[in-house]
């Protein structure tokens, strides 16, 4: 049973990673709008992609 001394903190570390990822996703605004991205998938764009100069990724807002 002593393996638990390692396994439980390990589980906790994994959970911490999860929380960190979640926190990043929230601050990135990924939960602000959960409907439009689902629709965006349905629109296949057959033209050239737009210039990706920082436009596509929403930069984290200063208020986050």
């Amino acid at each position: 049973m002593n393996v638990l001394y390692i396994l439980v903190p390990l589980a906790l570390a994994l959970a911490l990673c999860g929380v960190a990822a979640f926190r990043w996703a929230v601050r990135d605004g990924q939960f602000d709008d959960v409907e439009t991205p689902a629709l965006r998938v349905l629109l296949d764009d057959d033209s050239d992609p737009p210039p990706r100069s920082g436009g596509d990724s929403l930069s984290p807002n200063s208020d986050a």
């Binding site: 602000d32 709008d33 409907e35 439009t36 629709l39 737009p50 210039p51 100069s53 920082g54 436009g55 596509d56 929403l58």
Partner: peptide, 11 residues
């Protein structure tokens, strides 16, 4: 001159 446009449909 427009680099990006993202629409939040519900809002």
């Amino acid at each position: 001159g427009v680099a990006g446009a993202r629409l939040d449909l519900p809002r």
